[in-house]
Write a protein that binds this DNA or RNA. Sequence first.
RNA 1: GUGGGUGUAGCUCAAUUGGUUAGAGCACUGGGUUGUGGCCCCAGAGGCUGCCGGUUCAAGUCCGGUCACUCACCCCA
Length: 420
Amino acid sequence: MEPIQAVKGMNDILPDEIEWWRKVETVAREVLESFGYREIRTPVVEKTELFSRGIGESTDIVEKEMYTFPDGHNKWLTLRPEATASVVRSFIQNNLQANPLARKLYAIGPMFRRERPQKGRYRQFHQIDAEVFGVEDPMLDAEVMFMLRLFLERLGLTGVVLHVSSLGCKECRASYRDSLRSFLEAKVESLCPDCRRRLNVNPLRTFDCKVGGCKEAIQGAPILLDAICPACADHFQRLREHLKELGVEYMVDPRLVRGLDYYTRTTFEVITDRLGAQNAVGGGGRYDGLVKELGGPEVSGIGFAIGMERLILLLQQEQGLAARTPDLYVATIGEAARGKGFLLAQQLRSIGLETEIDYENASLKSRMRRADKLGAKLVVILGDDEVSRGEAQIRDMAEKTQESLPIASVAERVRTILGK
RNA sequence: GUGGGUGUAGCUCAAUUGGUUAGAGCACUGGGUUGUGGCCCCAGAGGCUGCCGGUUCAAGUCCGGUCACUCACCCCA
């Protein structure tokens, strides 16, 4: 029979790497909750319309990357490609605005985009996502970035840079788009086919183009950050002051363009140079019009997402794999001892000690080797000799010391040694 | 969607211009005289060389196809 393989771009997270995932999730929860965020879990599947309306019809995500399928009865469903739209939908549907404790939300889980996989980019990937509703003051924007940095620091991640910019509001972006378009139209013959198409759809994207001719053409183009309206400029200025107060290091990156249509004003990205082409570990920004666009009240919003695979890739590169080792290993010699050891192991586990035992008979030497490989801190040695005396031996593997004691007091003694 | 690279043991890699029984290290299992780990020594197990076809007396090696993985474009977390 042919073995069945996992779907392309959808990976198993194996036991050897799971410790990082748990650590990242734990630290994320601690940090987010200390800032007042509460967890929300939304379905992985939503109506397709939620994303086409929320993210934007002309975005790559909606145009060609979504897993969309019919659900019979003329309904189209989509595997969520990002978290914000779902959280916003839930915020509106459940009228969370009325709940003062539900202004700050976070979600952790898988997202799906049908892209060609490569390093740091997978078809199923996981995000830690945070959203805040109803606060317009840039103080919050700064706090969000402060929190993001704190989170990465807690994990010991180095070598990442925070890029910050402002996309302006709906109005000033529209007028900027027009002026950029007319600037580029004058040079249309030196643009690549992709960029000619972008000219109409979203001229801001030409800034991302790596083609030589486009890079030159874009030189001297008006910069969005210089063209934003006074209110947006003020917002950005105050954000920068708050970041300074908080001691958050960042660089202004006027070319930071986010690929989702809903972003307004503040945008930011955490960039690394150690993941090849996929350099964004996390990113986000304000989306002041989105809630209304999705049928809710006129409420502002800001949020960000962290790519867990990318983050963990970096952490593994820097800090290696974290291993989990048992507290103790029960090694028995002989039949009588085997039964006794089996019972003892269950008893030790019942009081919360991570205990390893083997189910087949083997030499003590091979048992000791195995205990060592597993990294057991203690080994309980139980031979027929000990059993006949009602005793057991406890060996401390690191100290190479060994003591005899009654079987009945093994559990208590192990606890004392391990301090548990 | 478009390019490039790579597929040999669980992992990392070998295998003269195509030429005998496809090797090594790590990992795994057992052993090195009574029941004690790491180092060392010995032994063992483990492969339809991704798959299909072609060229040839002969293919892991050359050619075509296919699948998988991977990197990049693109896009983004």
